[in-house]
Simulated assay, not measured.
Amino acid sequence: MLFEFVLASFSCVTFSACNSQANLLKTPQVTEVESTNFLEIPTENLTPKKLNSKKSTFASTSDSSFEKGDESKNSIALSSQGSYMTLTPTGLTNTLGNPLYELRLYANGQLRGTYTTVSGRAYTQNRNRHQAGTEAPLPDGIYKVAKTSVAGTIAEAGDRFLAIQPLFRTGRSALGIHYDPSFEKNNGEDGTSGCIALTNRRDLDLVLNYVRTYQPQYLEVNIQ
């Protein structure tokens, strides 16, 4: 009788151990994804708003609901005391008629530099900015900025590419910051397919150095 009791107890222990091992084997493994290359924006400082002027405005509130209406205009207002970037119109064009935009770099709430850029091409400025393949300038809104640049994959993206990720609904993707090797060259390639492009390699060096040093929390585009 004692032997049968011991045997039954041993069987229960063995069965429980097998079940535990089986459950461990079924547990999915979590792996790091490529999106970790982007800086995390603290959600406690975020609040959606609509871009309704050409001026860059910032605020902080506990309201976390998106404003109804045109989602293409929805933006996220952040504190202006950190490090961030803005893109606004200059009202000027280059020699080929491509509009020029001003990229401003802020660190600890202070303006650290301004750079002339292009986005889209002279003949694509009025195309749908939310539709892929239009080569229109990138749409207005807030973008997450990558921590570091990567090598450019096509000649017109230059040798380095800093990815930016829209934090709103849009059909555009693969957007970033680089320099335009064809700036003001009459070769049909002046401008970009939607990215933000500096006019020369040296300016890109300075922008990338700023990103490495200050790690901007976001980029606000307000050009339309």
Rank of each mutant, 00 (worst) to 15 (best):
residue 200 N to P: 12
residue 197 A to C: 15
residue 199 T to P: 07
residue 224 Q to L: 11
residue 75 S to T: 08
residue 120 G to A: 05
residue 163 A to N: 14
residue 103 L to A: 09
residue 52 N to S: 09
residue 106 Y to I: 13
residue 111 L to T: 13
residue 96 L to F: 10
residue 118 V to I: 12
residue 176 G to S: 15
residue 37 N to W: 05
residue 170 T to A: 02
residue 97 G to D: 07
residue 73 K to L: 04
residue 217 Q to Y: 11
residue 7 L to D: 10
residue 201 R to C: 14
residue 209 N to E: 06
residue 91 G to N: 05
residue 67 E to C: 04
residue 159 D to V: 07
residue 49 K to Y: 02
residue 63 D to G: 12
residue 98 N to H: 06
residue 137 P to L: 13
residue 213 T to H: 06
residue 184 E to L: 07
residue 162 L to P: 10
residue 75 S to A: 06
residue 75 S to M: 01
residue 101 Y to A: 07
residue 3 F to D: 15
residue 88 T to W: 05
residue 149 S to T: 08
residue 220 E to K: 15
residue 51 L to H: 04
residue 88 T to A: 05
residue 99 P to H: 07
residue 29 Q to R: 13
residue 214 Y to L: 08
residue 213 T to D: 08
residue 189 E to H: 14
residue 163 A to H: 15
residue 223 I to W: 07
residue 178 H to Y: 12
residue 59 A to I: 12
residue 146 A to V: 02
residue 32 E to L: 01
residue 180 D to L: 15
residue 165 Q to A: 14
residue 182 S to A: 12
residue 214 Y to K: 13
residue 37 N to L: 08
residue 180 D to Q: 09
residue 28 P to T: 00
residue 102 E to M: 13
residue 217 Q to E: 14
residue 161 F to I: 15
residue 96 L to R: 03
residue 197 A to Q: 10
residue 186 N to C: 06
residue 133 G to D: 01
residue 198 L to P: 11
residue 171 G to L: 15
residue 135 E to N: 06
residue 28 P to Q: 03
residue 168 F to E: 09
residue 84 Y to E: 05
residue 17 A to K: 06
residue 188 G to E: 02
residue 78 L to Q: 05
residue 224 Q to H: 09
residue 147 K to G: 03
residue 139 P to F: 08
residue 9 S to K: 06
residue 200 N to V: 07
residue 58 F to R: 12
residue 60 S to Q: 09
residue 139 P to Y: 06
residue 111 L to N: 14
residue 94 N to K: 01
residue 56 S to A: 13
residue 153 T to Q: 11
residue 177 I to C: 12
residue 34 E to W: 12
residue 95 T to Q: 02
residue 44 E to T: 09
residue 185 K to G: 02
residue 180 D to G: 12
residue 102 E to T: 11
residue 50 K to Y: 03
residue 75 S to E: 03
residue 166 P to W: 12
residue 11 S to K: 05
residue 119 S to G: 11
residue 147 K to V: 01
residue 118 V to P: 00
residue 190 D to P: 02
residue 129 R to Y: 10
residue 163 A to W: 14
residue 52 N to Q: 10
residue 114 T to V: 03
residue 105 L to K: 03
residue 139 P to I: 00
residue 158 G to C: 03
residue 194 G to C: 13
residue 85 M to V: 10
residue 151 A to H: 13
residue 49 K to T: 08
residue 100 L to T: 04
residue 128 N to L: 08
residue 186 N to F: 01
residue 59 A to Y: 11
residue 70 D to T: 01
residue 118 V to G: 01
residue 206 L to H: 01
residue 79 S to Q: 10
residue 192 T to R: 13
